[in-house]
Amino acid sequence: MIKKESGFYPLVLVVPALFVFTLFTIVPVLMSLTYSFTDWNIMRMDEPEFRGLLNYQRIFADPIFIRSMMNTLLFAFSTTALKTLFGLGLAVLLIKKVPGNGLFRTLFYLPCVLSATVIGVLFKAILTETGLLNNGLQLLGLGFLGRDWLSSYGTAMLSVIYIESWMWSGFNMMIFIAGLQAIPSDYMEVALIEGAGRIKRFFHVTLPLLIPAFTVVVTLSMAGGLRVFELVYVLTNGGPGFDTQVMNTYSFRAFSQGLLGESAAASIVLAAVVVTISFMLNRYLKSREVEL
């Protein structure tokens, strides 16, 4: 009798990766979860005591945390929408074989390889009262629109949302371009023979077949948006006041006060939000995917 071979590599090869993943991801998450139920404090690092759900009760009773949560959700949903729209638009424009499209693809992709800190510092200079934006508006005769963009909630939040969308649209463009290139030309030809116009072809052939790319783009954008930290930290540091605090800056704030248990609890809430929303979105989009 011939022994049936599995055709897979031996499972033992997974062990090194599993070890690293466990050490640097699973263990810290479990430790964070454990500490979130304690009164762990930077002044008493060796003696955390169990306190049940008190840290969670406290953060949910804190108006700054609730504001942070709302800001995080606003940031994540709006940047996901903008990054997806801009990314798709750029992909549709640059999928065509026109001279210089390689250069444009590189230019649009470039911001996402830069550090968020560098971008934050750069835009902080652009958005100040005497910055490039207000000077530009002045030159265009629109000086009356000029303002200190980061000094009030509305314009500060909008600025952060816009900058994040600008940074990552190029990355999403690349995913959409790969998705568009994977669509077999037969479908388009059949639609063309059937008399479908450009718009009909886009909405009834291209978009449904792009759903797998949407799944990747939306899931990554949402998870990235919910975990925002550097950009907010550098641009507004959660201000003015506590207006633009997000969950990660809130957690960092608790950490900086030495309230390590509370900081861990805020991180666990954030992790739960990221996992839940990403999982639900992913599941919904997967159900809409079409087999090629």
């Binding site: 000094s151 506590f242 900086s256 030495g258």
Partner: peptide, 18 residues
């Protein structure tokens, strides 16, 4: 010293701005 920068010092900026 580790409490004030993220609380009191922020209030000093928040109070006049708002």
């Amino acid at each position: 010293s580790s409490l004030n920068p993220s609380t009191l010092w922020v209030y000093y900026q928040e109070a006049p701005s708002k």
